[in-house]
Amino acid sequence: MQRRKFLGLTLGALALSAIPAQLAAEDFRKSKPKVWSAHTVDDAIKAMYGSNNLVMEGVKLKAPDVASNGGAIPVSFSTTKDVKTIAVFQDANPEAAVLVVDVNPYSVNNYSVKIKMAKSGTITIVAEGKDGKLYTAKKTLDVALGGCEG
């Protein structure tokens, strides 16, 4: 009887400890649907973070000055700040959001990704600090050939 009780407790404790790890993975398309339908960067940031109070520091962003192919523009971004999420927005396409990374304890927060832009515009990276600040970097670039086919 004693043993059975002990086992039961252990299993319960295990189950409890397993839950936070599962919750950590957040699907922002489900939890924040408005971010993905917002047409402007300001609206998307507001939908994501509830604020437009951006701090222009703490994030490094690398993208070409002129992109010959708007269908695959290489964008690199990184931050050394202690952050919860990092998001990429742009103002050249019908909707603003490109991606949101849910940062985990293993994240180094140095990313490269290829994105589409229909015309010249500005890329905005927002890193949501654990201190509540929205660390931001922006880069405006020319797109020679649009990548969304209109």
């Binding site: 993975a25 269908g71 304890p105 293993y106 994240s107 927060n109 490269s112 290829k114 994105i115």
Partner: peptide, 24 residues
């Protein structure tokens, strides 16, 4: 079994999206 990347994305990643990331 440990998550090292978790990313929600939109239609504006390139065709055949290619990306790099790092983890500890």
């Amino acid at each position: 079994g440990k998550t090292v990347l978790d990313m929600s994305t939109s239609q504006f990643l390139s065709k055949n999206p290619i990306f790099k990331f790092q983890f500890k």
